[in-house]
Nucleic acid binder design. Sequence first.
RNA 1: GCCGACGUAGCUUAGCUGGUGGAGCGGCUGAUUCGUAAUCAGCAGGUCGAGGGUUCAAAUCCCUCCGUCGGCUCCA
Length: 620
Amino acid sequence: MKLLLIHSDYIEYEVKNKAISNPEEIKLKKDRLEEVLTVFIAVEKIDEKSPNQTVLDASNEIEKTAEQLKVKNIMLYPYAHLSSNLGSPKIAKEILIELEYNLKNKYYNVKRSPFGWYKAFKISCKGHPLSELSRDIIAGKEKESIEKEKEIKSEWKILTPEGEFIDAEKFDFSDYEDLKLLYEYESKGSRKIIGEPAHVKMMQSLELVDYEPASDSGNFRWYPKGRMIKGLLEQHINNIVRDIGGMQVETPIMYDIEHPALSAYLKKFPARQYRVRSDDKEFFLRFAACFGQYMIAKDMTISYRNLPLRMYELTHYSFRREQSGETSGLRRLRCFTMPDLHTFCADLNQSTEEFERQFITSMKWMNDLKLHHEVAIRFVKEFFDNNKELAKNLAKLARKPILIELWDEQYFYFVMKFEFNVIDSMKKASALSTVQIDVENAERFNISYTDEKGDKKYPYVLHTSISGSIDRCVYAILEREAIKIKQGQKPIIPFWISPTQIRLIPIKDEFVTLCNDFIDNLNELSKNYTIRIDIDDRDESVGRKIRDAEKEWIPIIIVIGDMEKDTKTYKPRFRNSEIGENDKSYILNDLNKLIIEKIKDYPQQKIPLPIYISKRPKFK
RNA sequence: GCCGACGUAGCUUAGCUGGUGGAGCGGCUGAUUCGUAAUCAGCAGGUCGAGGGUUCAAAUCCCUCCGUCGGCUCCA
C-alpha cells in the first residue's frame, strides 16, 4: 500500500464521473474538512495477501503522523496513481472501508472520499517540513525488519591472555592504543578524528577500483589491477576454507519475499534490501548466503556421522541497501563479495571446538594480509557464564588482551560471536573475520540431522566469514598503508597480490629484447609458478620510469643495460628491506629463489595488463 | 533518511564583490636514447555536475535534482 500524507489547511472534493464499472455508492456528492491530515491511498496487489495486517500497519502509520502533527481530522482519499501495481478494486474498497473503521475507533474524525469516481479536489498544503510524507506499507515485513532494535544493554570487559577479566573502564590501555580505540568506538561511538578515509584516493590513483556514477551508490567498478587483487584474495580464501572442510556451493542472489521460511528470518535481520520485481512476484537481493545454504541443508539427509558439516559459498555478491549517508569507500558498500561458511554442529561441544578452529584460521588469514587487528568477543551473558573457558582459550590464542561485550539478553539470532577489527587511518574500527554461534535458525528452517539413537535433532549453526568482506579486506590493506605513509614509510601491498611484482626498465630501446629474454629465462627457472613481470618500454628517461614504478608501489624494479648484459647480474631496487637487500647484485637463479619463497604458499595469476607499459591505457 | 560542505578538461586545480574560462599532470606530434623518484618544445582537449529561475549579461546569485565527502543515525 502506498500512502501520501499531506498536512492541509483544508481538503475538499466534488464527485464527477464513474472511473470504474461498479463504483461505490455515493452518500455525499461534495465534502470538505479543515485542519486535516489528507491521506492519499493506493492499495496494491501485494496487500491482498494480508489485508488485515495491511490495515493495521497503515492505521498505525497514519496515527503516528496525526499524533505528531496534532490533528484530529483525517481524510482518506483513494488515489490509484500512487502505484503501478494496483490491487483489485473490490478488495481495495474493502481495505479502505476497514481502514476508515479502524481509525474511527481510535477517536479520529475520519472522512473518506468515495471509491471508483473521478473527483475534482482542492487542497491546501501547509508546507512545513513534516507536512508532506509518503509511506510504503508492506504488511508487517519490511517495516519490522528495518525497525530499530531495542536499546541494547551491554557490559564491557577486557580479558587478558592470562585469563583475567577486568572491567573495561578500569583497564590500563597505555600499551594497547588500538584496543582502546576499539573499545571507545564500540561502546561510546566516539569519533575522535574525522575526515575522508585515505584509501579512496589510493584505490583510484592505483587504478584498482572506483565509483560508478551510473549505478547505485556503493556499487563499484573494478579495473584490471583491482580485479586481479580481488581475484587472488577470493582464490586464497576459497583454498583456506576448503582446507578446513568447507564444501563450496552456489545459490541464487534473489529470493521470494513471500516465501514462508524467509519472511521470519527477514524480520530478525535489520538490513534494508534491494527489491526486484519479476511479473507479479517481488524478490529481495540476498544480504548473505544464509538462505541459499539453509534451503540446501533442509533438503539434505544428514547423519550425526556427517557432523560437523561445513557448507561454503563465496557470495558474488551480497547486497545491503545501507543508508546513503553510511556508505563509505570500500569500507561499507551496498554490493560486496564475502565468503560465507555455515557449519552444522551436533552439540555445544562440537560447536565450541569448531569455533576455536575457525578462530585460528581467521588469524591465519589476517596474518597472510599482514593486518593488525583487535579481537572483540560478544556473548549473551547467560551463555558466557556457562562458557567462560572458551573465552579464556580464545584470549590465549590471540596472545593479547581482548574486548568482551556481554548482552543482558539475546538480541540477535546468535548467543556468541567474535570479530577481528582493524583500525583505519581515521581511527575508525571495522570488522573483518567473524564467527557466530546460532541457536535458532536450524529449527526455523527445519534443518535437522539424525543422531545415534535415530532421533531427529536440530544442529547448532556457526555463521562464519573467515576473511570478512573481500572488498573490506582491500580497504584494510590500503588503510594500513595510509597509516604507514603518515609515519614516513613507503607504502606497499603484499608481494603475492602486487599486480606487477617486477618492473624491468631498459636503458635504451635496444635492451627491450634483453628484458624479454630475462622474462623467458626466469619463467624457465620457475615453471610451476607465475611471476608477474612487465617492461617499461616507453620513450622516457630512466629516472622517469623509476619514478612511475615507485608511484605504482612496485616491489622490485630492475634496470637493464650494458652492465646486466655483460655480467648477467642484476641490481634490483627493492621497495623495502623485507623484500630484499638493496645495493646487492643477484644472479637470476638467486633472484628466482627469493621470489618463489614469497609466492609459493599463495595463489598466483598472470599479469592483468599488457606486459609492455607503452601498450597500457590509463583507466584513471 | 536528516544536517552540513563540496562538484570547473581524463586527473589535480586558479577564477575576489556577475562582464562569455587559466594552469600543471596525463594524451597527441616532434626532438631526445638516457643508469635508479619527473628531458625539451608544440598541439588538441571545457553545454564550469544536471535542470529551472533572476539579469542586458551567470562558473559566479536563487531554487530543485544528482553525485561525492563529513556529521547524526545505523551496522548480522
